[in-house]
Design a protein around this nucleic acid. Structure first.
Length: 322
DNA sequence: TGCCAGGCGGGGT
DNA sequence: ACCCCGCATGGC
């Protein structure tokens, strides 16, 4: 399906913005092509923004099945998606000397988190459960490729995930081909909940504690997945998603006696404050999301910058590989 | 082969 | 409250 161009607008950028890195991090090839970032702005009607940087502005072109969005609505959407209004210098101030994140303000200066919609966020989190980074991103890739829909923006194909309703229609064999294993049941659970309209979205946007509680009601969504979803889709950083990987790295870096959840959470909140969730996100980027044993070796050697030359699959090279 | 990986829920204390 | 186990699947 080819989308029609509606209009374009421009957006002024904050002083600290590295558009290229922001666009690259954890993006598949259909999201970033090396120059343009393709963002799903709406599912109904499907509307995609093509974003590129020209001098000190962002050029934002809207493509859609139907004209319903206005220039100001689009601008606001892009600002939120790219976190252009976040005072990232406050975060940098907190982590300037941090044993885990000290290179974020330099090596990744201006990189922001590219947020996604709630549904895409939950699906992403499910794929990260009890699997390596590589396996998790392969699962998500399979879902897009085998069950997603393609929309053409000029000469570029943009994939979007099936809607919850569409997930419930996928044949079991097709879902199995995506290699989610037992996680596919959770995917179906989430699709059912979103489709039923039972998910109370309002409290999700009010305080993070009730948001976490609401998401955890879904069978298969625990604390980690709930919090990761909040980070990825609502830019809610107060509650850090803590997994085995983060736990061990934080324990080692800060010399914690215990690696209990409470101890690790407290250490993270103390160091990174209200930016805790963003800190966990960037921790995976600076360590190229390598498996735990390798990550620990890198920490001991002080190799806490992402490898620019990486030939492997990393958060920064995903767009070239998948 | 066997074990582990950005978890999770259920059943045992 | 905790502790422990099984759960698909792929990679080593």
């Amino acid at each position: 399906m080819k989308l029609r161009k509606l209009f374009y607008t421009t957006l002024s950028t904050p002083e600290i913005l590295d558009f290229r890195k922001t666009a690259m991090i954890y993006s598949f090839s259909w999201i970033f092509d090396g120059k343009n970032l393709y963002l799903v702005v709406s599912y109904n009607p499907v509307t995609i923004a093509k974003v590129s940087q020209i001098d000190h502005e962002l050029k934002v072109e809207a493509y859609s099945e139907q004209k319903t969005i206005t220039k100001s609505e689009l601008s606001e959407k892009i600002e939120i998606t790219l976190g252009l209004n976040e005072k990232i210098e406050e975060f940098y101030e907190k982590i300037r000397e941090d044993p885990l994140l000290k290179y974020v303000p330099t090596a990744l200066r201006g990189a922001r988190l590219r947020s996604v919609d709630l549904w895409t966020g939950i699906v992403t989190a499910i794929c990260q459960q009890n699997a390596s980074f590589k396996q998790g991103w392969t699962m998500l890739y399979n879902l897009y490729r085998k069950t997603g829909r393609t929309f053409r923006v000029e000469n570029h194909d943009v994939l979007i995930l099936p809607t919850p309703n569409q997930v419930l229609e996928i044949k079991p064999d097709t879902l199995k081909e995506c290699k989610l294993g037992y996680r596919s049941q959770t995917l179906v659970e989430v699709a059912k909940v979103l489709e039923s309209g039972d998910l109370e979205e309002d409290p999700l946007y009010q305080d993070p504690y009730s948001a976490e509680k609401i998401l955890k009601k879904i069978k298969g969504i625990g604390q980690y997945s709930a919090r990761l979803t909040l980070v990825l889709s609502l830019r809610e950083y107060a509650l850090p998603p803590i997994d085995r990987w983060t736990t061990r790295l934080v324990q080692e870096a800060y010399g914690l006696e215990s690696r209990s959840f409470k101890t690790v959470e407290k250490a993270i909140k103390t160091r990174w404050g209200k930016w805790a969730g963003l800190g966990v996100f960037f921790l995976t980027v600076v360590l190229d999301a390598v498996p735990l044993s390798k990550a620990l070796l890198r920490l001991r050697k002080g190799e806490l910058k992402p490898r620019a030359d990486a030939k492997e699959l990393t958060p920064l090279t995903l767009w070239k590989k998948l």
